[in-house]
Design a binder for these strands. Structure first.
Lengths: 353, 353
DNA sequence: TTGAAAGCGCTAACAC
DNA sequence: GTGTTAGCGCTTTCAA
């Protein structure tokens, strides 16, 4: 019986120890536990003076409702699960950091926290998700890699797990809300920018045709050139998302089609193009223009700067969380999609001409 | 009363609906609830055949223990809180992404998940932390910005909240476990690398003296030069962590001290130095060597590559989680610290000479 | 407007 | 080795 050695004053700001409960607050305020709960969740129900008394008791004790108890009762965790995609080649993904940050902020404003996890088993589409759902550890997921038609989203949809996707659906009839960035529009803006700067032979350095994401961006380039009556044929290359691939593509294109500008599907490819220009003694921006995609730190730090398409990730996060809120509230708003426009950030690599 | 329209078989893999509970498993396996709990938490207590029966019942139902209930009972959440530091200037922090990823992975292996949050109020050191602790939403924190002597760590220590720090303590007598990277050793390795490549006038481009982190790195440079009997005086500059600052520093140093190599406190500063070299018509690696710090995507993508010091963030995360585990298990291992050595990644910016 | 009772799903003690 | 009892802290009926 020696465990209950309470300090002198129960109401003083004790360091950690045992956190106060609803009952403690109720006792201090001279009301029932229920009234304290109402003060928290339905303040409108209380009379003004009662509410005030309860609130000062809460403040005095430094009370916060126990999350586990609340979660157990309400069958919700107010947690959003986000699966981190694997780090490729020890290189940080330029968008991940910004996106995660934006999501955390948007979630907080909606009263949610973000729970991070990664898949134990890359072969299993359910990996990570299922356990989290069955154990009611998270209320919903944000899925980030649907564009490549991955099986995870399909699996989630089949299991009836609430989720919203950053990326357009992998099939027309998808039933989940999504938010995406109109990469084609971004690349189109970049291409127009080059046309305005008097470029007529504008090349595309992109990814293999399997990538929806890459085809979307490529379309923005091709579409704009056709609109302006400029040549498209023989001015496009495809490859992996590596500097080496960009390097090789630029080398081949320069020899075969003599473009004066390169639009790239990523900053990584642009880095390879820049590398080749350097090796050929060509000045980026001066002799040949280069545009990247993602506005990564690389684009920002490159001497002279790399013109690049910047995704509005902050807005993406806000929309995702908003859709998640609706999804969790009612069962309704299936089939909603939002397409956001990126913005071209102009720097030295397209300027000095 | 029309809500309880149960499907025919209770044991079939229903989509979402109501997840099975311990009681369902117990019923199916023909044992008590407690036995199922033991099967999960103390399998050694069960007889082999009972265990087998329980396990197959668990598998059949697709059962996962309800997190909220377990958390309520055990007074633990198996969640580690990580506060994301603010995004500066819309630029991603090169280390954040890698570190977060490493932490998620290390945590998973220890049976924890990572909960992300950001401070609502930057002026309040308790911001975010306190609420999460009082509501028992997380078991512990990983604090990442202790090095600059921030008040958060001091506050956490005072409140008795379990946490481990990525960064050395801000005062000698700190009581919390920490893990840090020996930046001085990394810069020393970089400096030795330059000495071996016959450089004798090696400059330092760093941060203001207030930064412990910066002084630690700077020491690695100064120490090495003195060991080798090379000049230190007049070869160092300090400024903000921006390319502009690196540009200005390099410009001034080049005029006043004619160094043939620059060691920088960050890749960001190195970017500025490279920018200046380009403007002066000097080739990085060819005429003047440059070393950065962080091995950011910029360093990896820069044409030719930027030699840079890479922090072992994966190891940092593993050590942090290990210390957290001990801290949470017993109350003992206060005062432990681990210092890890970074690794120099050599690229073109120090090679062609 | 406020209070009393019940129970969410789990595990720590203890009895069998 | 297995079952019984109790209760973690909260919110949702319902009654006063």
């Amino acid at each position: 019986m020696r465990e209950a050695e309470q300090p002198h004053g129960a109401a003083e700001p004790t360091t950690a120890s045992v956190p106060p409960t609803l009952a403690d607050v109720a006792a201090l305020a001279g009301v029932s536990r229920q009234t304290v709960s109402n003060a928290l969740n339905n303040p409108a129900l209380l009379r003004a003076d009662t509410l005030e008394r309860v609130r000062s008791a809460i403040a005095e004790l430094g009370y916060s409702p126990n999350r586990a108890a609340r979660n157990l009762r309400t069958r919700a965790s107010r947690l959003i699960g986000l699966r981190l995609t694997a780090v490729v080649d020890e290189t940080a993904n330029p968008t991940t950091d910004r996106f995660v940050h934006s999501l955390v902020q948007a979630s907080r404003e909606a009263g949610y926290h973000v729970l991070l996890f990664d898949g134990d088993d890359p072969d299993d589409p359910a990996s990570g998700y299922d356990a989290l759902v069955r154990s009611t550890a998270v209320d919903a997921f944000v899925v980030t890699d649907t564009f490549r038609g991955n099986p995870q989203a399909a699996h989630l949809e089949a299991s009836g797990v609430p989720f919203v996707a950053f990326g357009r659906p992998w099939k027309p009839a998808a039933l989940h809300p999504w938010v995406d960035v109109d990469g084609g529009a971004g690349v189109a803006a970049a291409t127009r920018h080059l046309v305005e700067r008097r470029h007529t032979r504008i090349a595309w350095v992109g990814w293999r045709a399997q990538s929806h994401l890459g085809e979307d961006r490529r379309d923005g380039w091709a579409r704009t050139l056709r609109e302006r009556g400029l040549p498209v044929e023989g001015l496009a290359a495809r490859g992996d998302d590596t500097p080496a691939s960009g390097y090789a593509a630029a080398s081949a294109l320069l020899d075969s089609a003599a473009p004066t500008a390169f639009v790239c599907a990523s900053d990584t490819l642009a880095a390879g193009v820049l590398d080749l220009l350097r090796d050929r003694g060509l000045g980026a921006g001066r002799d040949v223009a280069v545009v990247g995609f993602d506005d990564s730190p690389f684009a920002q730090l490159l001497p002279g700067g790399l013109t690049s398409v910047r995704q509005p990730l902050e807005d993406v996060a806000v929309h995702l969380v908003a859709q998640l809120g609706e999804l969790l509230a009612r069962r309704a708003p299936y089939g909603t999609g939002t397409l956001l426009e990126p913005r071209l950030v102009v720097r030295g690599s397209t300027l000095t001409r």
